[in-house]
Amino acid sequence: MPRTLGLIGSGLIGTSLARLAVAAGMNVVLSNSRGPDTLADLVASLGEGARAATPDEAARAGDLVVVTIPLKAYDRLPVAALRGRTVLDTMNYYPQRDGRLAVLDSSELTSSSLVQRHLAGSRLVKAFNSIGSNQLFTLARPAGAPDRSALPVAGDDETAKQEAAQLLDTLGYDTVDTGTLAESWRSEPGTPVYTKPYLGEPPAGLTPADYFPWFLSTPGVPVPAARVRELVAEAERGRAGGVLPQGAGGSQASL
């Protein structure tokens, strides 16, 4: 089991991952673009297993490093500090937030392939991008639990994918390998496995204005590995760039 998880980005997904990691007995080093002082309350709530740092420090401290920032900021990731490391990429392409990226709109690259090109010396694995932040926390279960969920991962390096699967197992999830980074579109926004299966059915009569608060608060429903495989197999590649959940606007760094 990795001992320390580095987090570059400490928004909704980053916070859920930090909480799961600390609960599993790991150390967590959190960072964001605004400086360690802005994370004082979050670190205090997590307890002794957590500390705040700069992105460069978090990258160097983590046995594994999760990058969970808006995709439009991918080119600010610390290349030198992440060189040689396994990096888990939770980022999704939302044009209404990130602006249009021609290389993604043309399907020349997936978003994770684009990030891997920037982090050429790192081993990138797409993970944690297909589930909402609250469901990520509430659906975690011990190994062997009958209601354990699975999450898709993709990557070009088999050892890195094994490391990612070990982390997922530690945090409470099974893993479904969806292939290489070129195939990571199978869990991108708009595909069958993206968020909706983990949410379950929204309440009858839910208004558009109420959808996002429900999205952030509902505990969700388990999605086992067999069902994730089915959903991934059903995916058809369309135009890149999903739609943010209703009411999310452009400010959510990571759902």
Rank of each mutant, 00 (worst) to 15 (best):
A59I: 08
E201T: 15
G242Q: 02
T195C: 14
V79N: 11
V153S: 08
T207Q: 11
Y74T: 10
V223I: 06
P70S: 10
T68R: 01
R141T: 01
V87K: 07
P36N: 10
G200S: 14
E188G: 04
L104F: 04
L119N: 09
L114F: 07
T38D: 06
S16L: 01
P219F: 03
E201R: 13
R97P: 01
P203V: 11
P203N: 13
G99H: 08
A18Q: 10
V243E: 14
V65K: 02
Y194N: 12
A52D: 05
S107D: 14
S217I: 01
L231N: 12
S33Q: 08
Y211H: 06
A58P: 04
R85C: 05
A235M: 04
Y93T: 12
D210Q: 15
S149I: 10
D147P: 07
L5P: 12
E188I: 05
P202A: 09
A143I: 14
H118K: 12
Y194C: 03
A253H: 03
R83D: 15
R227N: 12
K72R: 13
G172A: 02
G6P: 11
A21T: 02
K161W: 06
A80N: 12
Y94W: 04
S122L: 04
S184V: 04
T86M: 08
A52C: 11
T4Q: 13
P245V: 06
M1N: 09
G179M: 10
L167G: 12
Q135E: 03
T195R: 05
I69S: 08
W214L: 03
D157W: 08
L5M: 13
L231E: 14
Y93L: 09
T68P: 02
P208I: 10
G84W: 08
K72A: 03
H118R: 14
A240D: 05
V66Q: 01
W214M: 02
L20M: 10
R19T: 05
A59N: 03
R76S: 15
T90M: 01
G6I: 00
T86C: 13
E163K: 09
V28Q: 02
Y194K: 02
V103N: 03
N134L: 01
D56S: 03
P78M: 15
L101Y: 05
T195F: 11
G11W: 00
S122T: 03
T175M: 06
E57N: 00
D174V: 04
L216S: 09
Q96H: 13
A165Q: 12
T110N: 10
A233G: 13
